[in-house]
Amino acid sequence: MSFIDKAKHKAEEVVGEVKEKVGELTGNEKLQAEGKKEQSAANVKQAGDSVKDAASSVTDSIKGDRR
């Protein structure tokens, strides 16, 4: 998983957090819900990043054992 993809996913999470907080402060429930939704989507992407990294590590380990 590339660093750029991971950074984008983290940025999406942070944007969601900001929207949620602004929604809370302004009483804008729609913005607050949108922020939570964006955070959830970003967290799913980050979980996928972790799975891909783990799979890559396992693959690298297996390849190393064969040498």
Rank of each mutant, 00 (worst) to 15 (best):
1 M>L: 12
1 M>T: 01
2 S>W: 00
2 S>V: 02
2 S>Q: 07
3 F>R: 11
3 F>T: 12
4 I>N: 11
5 D>S: 15
5 D>N: 15
5 D>W: 08
6 K>N: 12
6 K>T: 10
6 K>S: 12
6 K>C: 11
6 K>D: 10
8 K>W: 00
8 K>V: 07
8 K>R: 08
9 H>E: 06
9 H>V: 01
10 K>E: 09
10 K>T: 10
11 A>E: 07
11 A>Q: 10
11 A>W: 00
12 E>N: 13
12 E>I: 02
12 E>C: 05
12 E>M: 09
13 E>W: 12
13 E>D: 03
13 E>S: 01
14 V>G: 03
14 V>K: 13
15 V>P: 07
15 V>G: 04
16 G>S: 04
16 G>C: 00
16 G>V: 04
17 E>T: 09
17 E>G: 13
17 E>Y: 09
18 V>L: 14
19 K>W: 03
19 K>M: 15
19 K>C: 10
19 K>P: 05
20 E>K: 15
20 E>F: 11
21 K>P: 02
21 K>C: 10
21 K>M: 08
21 K>F: 13
22 V>C: 08
23 G>I: 02
23 G>T: 07
23 G>M: 04
23 G>K: 00
23 G>Q: 04
24 E>V: 05
24 E>C: 04
24 E>N: 05
25 L>S: 11
26 T>M: 10
26 T>A: 11
27 G>I: 06
27 G>F: 11
29 E>C: 10
29 E>G: 08
30 K>D: 11
30 K>N: 05
31 L>V: 08
31 L>Y: 00
31 L>T: 00
31 L>F: 05
32 Q>I: 02
32 Q>E: 09
32 Q>V: 08
32 Q>H: 06
33 A>F: 09
33 A>W: 00
33 A>D: 07
34 E>C: 12
34 E>T: 04
34 E>R: 00
34 E>Y: 01
35 G>I: 04
35 G>Y: 09
35 G>N: 04
35 G>A: 06
36 K>Y: 05
36 K>V: 09
36 K>G: 02
37 K>M: 09
40 S>D: 13
40 S>C: 06
40 S>H: 06
40 S>V: 10
41 A>S: 08
41 A>K: 12
41 A>V: 03
42 A>G: 03
42 A>E: 00
43 N>P: 03
44 V>H: 10
44 V>T: 12
44 V>N: 12
44 V>P: 06
45 K>P: 01
45 K>Q: 00
47 A>Y: 09
48 G>E: 08
49 D>H: 11
50 S>D: 00
50 S>W: 08
51 V>Y: 09
51 V>Q: 02
51 V>K: 06
52 K>Q: 12
52 K>G: 04
52 K>R: 13
53 D>S: 07
53 D>P: 02
53 D>R: 09
54 A>L: 15
54 A>P: 06
55 A>H: 01
55 A>K: 01
55 A>T: 05
55 A>C: 01
57 S>K: 15
57 S>Y: 14
58 V>D: 01
59 T>C: 04
59 T>M: 07
60 D>E: 07
60 D>T: 02
61 S>L: 13
61 S>D: 12
62 I>D: 03
62 I>K: 03
62 I>F: 06
63 K>D: 05
63 K>T: 13
63 K>P: 05
64 G>P: 02
64 G>N: 12
64 G>K: 15
65 D>T: 15
66 R>Y: 13
66 R>S: 08
67 R>C: 01
